[in-house]
């Protein structure tokens, strides 16, 4: 608990990142709405991005990830956006075929 009293350092970034990650996973695993699942995906990715930023900061540690981390974060942001776009299109296609967005109804393929 001591980290709640310390100045903001690496562990805080990592904690928030982990929290986002877990939220995202839970969201992905439990939501019935396809768009909700996509939101979960975004959360997961953002959690990871936060991790990268934290590790890359030269102010928290002497040995750090450096510019690599920042660049990775930028790339992942863009990638997440692209992926979200495609996923949305696929969700729309699904809606056009099934007239619903409930992923539990998407269980014709099994076995």
């Amino acid at each position: 608990m001591s980290f709640l009293y310390e100045p903001i350092g690496l562990s805080h970034y990592l904690a928030v990142g982990a929290f986002l990650f877990v939220c995202g996973i839970v969201c992905m695993a439990t939501k019935r709405n396809a768009l909700g699942i996509l939101i979960g995906i975004e959360l997961v990715l953002n959690g990871a991005i936060l991790n990268f930023i934290g590790f890359a900061s030269p102010y928290f540690r002497d040995e750090n990830l450096g510019l690599d981390g920042h660049l990775i974060a930028l790339f992942v942001i863009v990638l997440a956006a692209a992926e979200a776009a495609v996923a949305l299109a696929i969700a729309l296609n699904f809606y056009n075929n099934h007239a619903t967005i409930d992923v539990d109804r998407a269980s014709e393929l099994k076995g």
Binding site: A29, R32, D104, A106, S107, E108, K110, G111
Partner: peptide
């Protein structure tokens, strides 16, 4: 099972 949520 065919259920996406279960997969995830």
């Amino acid at each position: 099972t065919g259920s996406l949520r279960q997969y995830v």
